[in-house]
């Protein structure tokens, strides 16, 4: 049964990925539809960052080290820090806060 679950989840995941590559071009043509498709990753990744930063295991909103770390990342971005500094800086802030018992 576990094998069936593993294989079904895998096949469905791949089918979803492939679906985006084989939709008829006419579905996503035109100025406005084209704009939607261009903006889609922005919307999905922004939503993902919000969930990764503020949503707890049960689905409720939780304020903890993750939000402080993202705040640090934004400050570094405003200061035009390079990509690696932003990523490592956020990890460092979250790690230090947690080591200090700050969630």
């Amino acid at each position: 049964m576990t094998w069936a679950t593993v294989l079904a989840a895998g096949v469905l995941a791949y089918a979803l990925k492939l679906a985006g590559y084989v939709v008829p071009a006419s579905w996503v043509e035109g100025e406005r539809r084209s704009r939607v498709v261009t903006l889609l990753p922005v919307a999905l990744l922004s939503g993902l960052v919000a969930v990764q930063t503020l949503v707890g295991d049960g689905g409720g909103l939780v304020l903890d080290a993750r939000l402080v770390a993202l705040g640090a990342a934004v400050v570094l971005l405003v200061l035009r820090a390079n990509f690696l500094v932003v990523v490592a800086g956020a990890a460092l802030v979250a790690g230090l806060l947690r080591a200090a018992g700050g969630g």
Binding site: L45, Q52, V86, L92, A94
Partner: peptide, 12 residues
């Protein structure tokens, strides 16, 4: 802090 690193990478 690797979870925060992932979110920061997407934000960057």
């Amino acid at each position: 802090g690797l979870d925060a690193a992932a979110a920061a990478a997407f934000a960057a």
